[in-house]
Design a binder for these strands. Structure first.
Lengths: 196, 196
DNA sequence: ACACGTTGTTGGCAGTTCGCCAATAGCGGT
DNA sequence: ACCGCTATTGGCGAACTGCCAACAACGTGT
């Protein structure tokens, strides 16, 4: 079989197993059996079980990002935020299990780095949507606070998808309002506060 | 040695190791050696390695909660929030490694439940501080949104302690302002929105 | 005082898992 | 046709975990 296809096939099967059970409870033998190959081949392709895991997570985390809304004359920041939040929730609803499973890092520093990169991409996306590029470049605190917002988004989304204490609509209203307030009031306040 | 002391000693040593390296990279043999006992004794006390891990996390997560600020006449919600946030940050700064390490659940459902309980306790604390008890009991969404805020707090705190993109003062101003806005504007908005 | 059950403690055995390597087979280039 | 390269397999050795038998210390009933 074509090595590239085989690689993708193994990654897909591995991720299927990894997202239902934690890392330690899935054996390489099981992955190999599920993929219909010998166990030694996993080593041949990915070196070690850990690297296979990292590769699988990285693969599944490279989902196409939500498109940045077009700039429409007359549309304020709130409209763009609303549209972007909706895209994010849609993407989330479609890949529930993937996202929920990927959020647990298990303290592995390298894995943490991979997930962290995905979160930074989310921050990049927000910065672009709301047009904060210039400020963000000179003030790293802005990225820090937006990273905080991504924590808010993850937690409320989990409340929606896992615990059901919030509806999708509520999450939408909540996040949209929170982000707008953040941009218009809180971030300027914190940045100005440093002048004291 | 007194069984209770021995138990605590093993838990302390185990947690020391678990917080510097992920679960899979710490062997029971190593823990036993560090604690100065035989490996079989770990099984005698905790049954399995996993249970030992859970016990260690639960032990270290049972830190004394931040005291609820006294009610002072003339002090508004903002004052109480400010005081509470400060207590939380203080606690966090003192037990950095413990908290940062405990936040990684590794997809283990039982462990996830333990950490989740700690987060719910934080929500309880906030509810008590801002006096939202009555509303929260009839509207579970309130707990959901406050759980979102705890995600915000965790993420910004990590930005402060780990990445250093925020200072402690900035985190304080940010969280205080965000929580006040949440209580006064955003939560009422979401609750009212459901009436549509 | 002596036998005995209980509990802390140890070492070792068996099963499983993982990383590595030698061996085989297919396939393209010269 | 020969040769090298890569995919693929099976197996070996090391490490780790769970379990159990054995030993020691200590309290208790007779």
């Amino acid at each position: 079989m074509d090595p590239d296809d085989r690689r993708r096939q193994i990654l897909a099967r591995a991720w299927t197993l990894f997202r239902e059970r934690p890392y330690g409870e899935v054996s390489s033998t099981e992955i190999a059996a599920a993929a219909g190959v010998s166990r030694g081949l996993l080593n041949h392709y990915f070196g070690t079980k850990r690297e296979l895991y990292l590769a699988a997570v990285a693969e599944m985390l490279s989902v196409p990002p939500v498109p940045v809304p077009e700039y429409v004359a007359g549309a304020g920041v709130r409209d763009r935020v609303c549209q972007s939040v909706d895209g994010w929730l849609e993407l989330l609803e479609r890949n529930q299990e993937t996202w929920l499973a990927a959020m647990s890092t298990g303290g592995d520093p390298e894995l943490e780095r991979i997930v962290d990169q995905a979160r930074e991409r989310m921050v990049d996306h927000i910065i672009e949507v709301v047009g904060l590029g210039p400020v963000a470049r000179s003030r790293p605190e802005v990225r820090g606070m937006l990273r905080g917002f991504s924590g808010l988004a993850e937690a409320t989304s989990a409340e929606w998808l896992r615990r059901g204490r919030l509806t999708r609509r509520q999450v939408h209203v909540f996040l949209e309002e929170a982000l707008v307030r953040l941009l218009e009031d809180i971030i300027p306040l914190v940045l100005g506060d440093a002048a004291r």
